[in-house]
């Protein structure tokens, strides 16, 4: 049986490469994973620079920071949604398991997120060296983020991209599997839970303690917490996908 022989000879290697090839499959959507994030990042940067330049010319010489660098993070929600909705049905046609698809998609997000974080760190380094492009305006170099150094800042940024990606991916999975009503219910549930936490903290008059905890933990500490949240969400997302029909 020649087919059997050639089959068993190639199979292990073939199986090993499948998850890695999912990354290539996801990157077919260069728009989603490369160009649009780059555009969002570039656009946010240009806009921020323009505003700083206007402020600078208007005589505002103090330290200027803005939320522009958040935009690409938010965009990773979209990346997560599209990685799921656009590619999952095709991944099934490629005879992939849901696990292979999921792990490969996370890896693809990680590649994109790492690239984003790298650009972010490089910008921050430039900003630190040029004192905010000579106008005291900062896009990527935010004091509290960089207190642990460029690596820590990069890690925070990377973890946030993954967090947003996983949330987007999970939401899309819930939507595709159960429909709008269930997704909306889940989101309202999460909203209620958050309001509940806020209420609890307020009633206990614990805000100072919470503030102190945040300060004590620092951005790197918070990042580690975020990693824990990522792992939890990723597990939940996988469990939802695991029995998802194509």
């Amino acid at each position: 049986m020649t087919t059997l022989e050639s089959g068993s000879a190639t199979r292990p290697a073939v199986l090993r490469n499948r998850t890695r090839n999912v990354v290539r499959l996801q990157f077919v959507n260069t728009q989603t994973f490369l160009w649009v994030p780059a555009l969002v990042l570039g656009g946010a940067w240009v806009l921020t620079m323009l505003i700083y330049w206007i402020l600078q010319n208007a005589g505002v010489t103090g330290v200027k920071t803005g939320g522009g660098s958040q935009a690409p993070l938010w965009y990773f929600l979209v990346v997560g949604i599209q990685a799921m909705t656009m590619t999952f049905p095709f991944s099934q046609a490629m005879s992939l398991t849901r696990r292979e698809f999921y792990v490969g998609s996370l890896a693809a997000a990680a590649v994109s997120g790492l690239g984003m974080s790298l650009v972010f760190v490089l910008l921050g380094l430039v900003e630190r060296a040029t004192e905010g492009y000579g106008m005291n305006g900062y896009f990527a170099y935010l004091d509290w983020l960089w207190e642990g150094g460029p690596l820590a800042a990069g890690l925070t940024y990377f973890v946030l991209t993954m967090l947003f990606f996983i949330v987007g991916f999970w939401s899309a999975t819930i939507y595709k599997r159960y429909g709008t009503a269930v997704l909306t219910t889940v989101l309202i549930g999460i909203g209620l839970a958050l309001v509940g936490v806020v209420a609890l903290v307020t009633w206990q008059q614990a805000w100072p303690a919470v503030g102190q905890w945040v300060l004590d933990t620092g951005s790197l500490g918070l990042t580690l917490w975020a990693i824990a949240v990522c792992v939890l969400l990723a597990a939940g997302s996988y469990l939802t996908l695991r029995r998802m029909p194509a």
Partner: peptide, 13 residues
Amino acid sequence: CFVRESQKYPDDA
């Protein structure tokens, strides 16, 4: 290999 009548492909593909 399963070839579906209504197979969906990635948007940019």
